[in-house]
């Protein structure tokens, strides 16, 4: 029989043991004061953490946070709500600057470097024109035709989000699934799909959370965040945008 180590004791306190192991620890605790003392310490620590953080649940929600969750119709001017005499827009800008920009800038520069490295190796997806990078070949066809609402598990390009940028262009994120796997953002211009962001990526393996929360590399997400105004397209808007030729 394995001895009762810290991880077993912890699982006991966390209620993560099965009935047989729980009974084994119960029996050991009845005979071993040192073990019982460690269980009390673990429980005391848990109680201290709950006492420190559970009160947050009952705190009033700051206005700048609840304002973000108003229905769209109710927030025609979403970031000018006053909160405590401060302009919530300023708070938001400050928050965005503090939380996003340095990381995004770093990630973007790393991604650009990486994109530059594999560029020469693969010219069939990309063409350059006047120093700007555009989609070519199969990537252009995927951006022109594929809908995220009708995913094709066998297509070599997967389309992510589509939205209208602050500049009025339709932009779409995508992942190229054939090695070297990479992800990027394409924005529709009169000269074709320009690629302001393209970098290496890791394919999700179908896990829900991966799919949902971290499908896009941070650099691509940052590129989206920098351009997004309003909301990303839903299935209907995406279809309508295709019908309009992504203009």
């Amino acid at each position: 029989m394995t001895p009762i180590d810290d991880e077993i004791l912890q699982a006991y306190v966390d209620g993560a043991l099965d009935a047989a192991d729980t009974a084994r620890v119960d029996a050991a605790l009845a005979q071993d004061d040192a073990l019982a003392c460690r269980v009390r310490q673990l429980r005391a620590l848990d109680a201290q953490l709950r006492a420190a953080f559970d009160p947050v649940l009952d705190e009033p929600i700051p206005g700048r946070l609840s304002a973000l969750l108003q229905p769209t119709a109710a927030r025609a001017t979403p970031f000018t709500v006053l909160e405590g005499g401060r302009d919530a827009g300023a708070v938001r800008r400050r928050a965005t600057r503090r939380w996003l920009v340095p990381g995004a800038a770093l990630a973007a520069s790393v991604a650009l470097l990486a994109a530059g490295l594999w560029w020469q190796a693969d010219s069939s997806w990309v063409r350059t024109q006047d120093g700007r990078q555009f989609a070519a070949g199969a990537l252009t066809r995927a951006l022109d035709n594929q809908l995220a609402s009708e995913p094709d598990a066998y297509a070599s390009v997967a389309i992510g989000l589509s939205f209208r940028s602050k500049d009025g262009q339709v932009c779409r994120s995508f992942t190229v699934r054939t090695p070297p796997v990479r992800a990027g953002l394409a924005c529709h211009t009169t000269a074709g799909w320009e690629l302001p962001m393209l970098g290496p990526a890791v394919l999700s393996e179908g896990g829900e959370l991966r799919q949902a929360a971290s499908d896009l590399p941070p650099a691509v997400q940052a590129a989206i965040d920098a351009r997004l105004s309003g909301e990303v397209f839903d299935a209907q808007q995406e279809r309508a945008a295709r019908a309009e030729g992504w203009r």
Partner: peptide, 18 residues
């Protein structure tokens, strides 16, 4: 709360992914 604000904005912007 700055972190929460970023999370709300990201979650709303990516809501089609959920």
């Amino acid at each position: 709360d700055d972190l929460v604000q970023v999370v709300l904005e990201r979650a709303l912007a990516r809501s089609v992914q959920w």
